[in-house]
């Protein structure tokens, strides 16, 4: 969250700041991370010895709602960045809180689903489906939670006038992260919930 840190030099070869290049690189790494989690889930699809099986418990409607909320949070993120760049501090903080709120709704809905599944008997230890499902989606939820905290810190810094438009890249990078987490969820939603 600190600013560009090219030692003694502002211009970079690509014209893109180090922070952004570095963050994209990190996201590439994250792709492999989630790729491995998702692949494991797919490999174990259909190997659960005991129920409940995915088709018995997943409610596409509930998940569609929570997915939509998360999608809209990305929109709010875009608007927050726009407001930071336009130096509209209050509006920016407002949109960041909207991101946090929607992230929160997503998490609450997902945890309610977790409780429901546990009720049905699906736990971390009950089957390969349970293990791979909870670790995959749980890791994603930790990412969402981390993003929400990040947005909170940004909102606080905005409030303290620490992020003038010239430093909007801080928000832009947080936005990159948030969109990434969002896209990963779309992939999970498609592969885990939609494809039977």
């Amino acid at each position: 969250m600190a600013q560009a840190a090219v030692a003694g030099e502002h211009a970079t070869n690509t014209g893109i700041s180090n922070w952004k290049v570095g963050f994209w690189t990190f996201l590439a790494s994250e792709c492999l991370f989630f790729g491995t989690l998702i692949s494991t889930y797919m490999v174990y699809k259909g190997t659960a010895l005991v129920g409940p099986y995915p088709e018995e418990i997943f409610s596409v409607i509930t998940t569609t709602v929570s997915t939509t909320v998360l999608l809209f949070s990305s929109l709010a993120m875009v608007l927050a960045l726009d407001q930071v760049q336009k130096a509209n501090k209050k509006a920016a903080i407002g949109w960041l809180f909207a991101v946090i709120a929607m992230g929160g709704i997503f998490l609450v809905m997902e945890f309610q689903s977790y409780l429901k599944y546990i009720d049905y008997g699906l736990t971390l230890t009950s089957s390969t489906f349970g293990s791979s499902y909870y670790v995959l989606t749980g890791t994603h939820k930790v990412h969402v939670l981390f993003g929400m905290i990040w947005m909170g810190i940004l909102a606080w810094r905005l409030h303290k006038d620490r992020i003038p438009p010239a430093k909007s890249e801080q928000v832009e990078i947080a936005g990159l992260y948030w969109h990434f987490v969002d896209i990963i969820w779309i992939v999970i939603f498609t592969l885990v919930y939609l494809i039977p």
């Binding site: 494991t40 490999v43 174990y44 190997t47 659960a48 010895l49 971390l124 230890t125 089957s127 390969t128 349970g130 293990s131 791979s132 909870y134 670790v135």
Partner: peptide, 12 residues
């Protein structure tokens, strides 16, 4: 107690 690598539970 997850079962990722537990053959008795279908883990490979």
């Amino acid at each position: 107690g997850a079962v990722f690598f537990d053959p008795s539970m279908g883990g490979d």
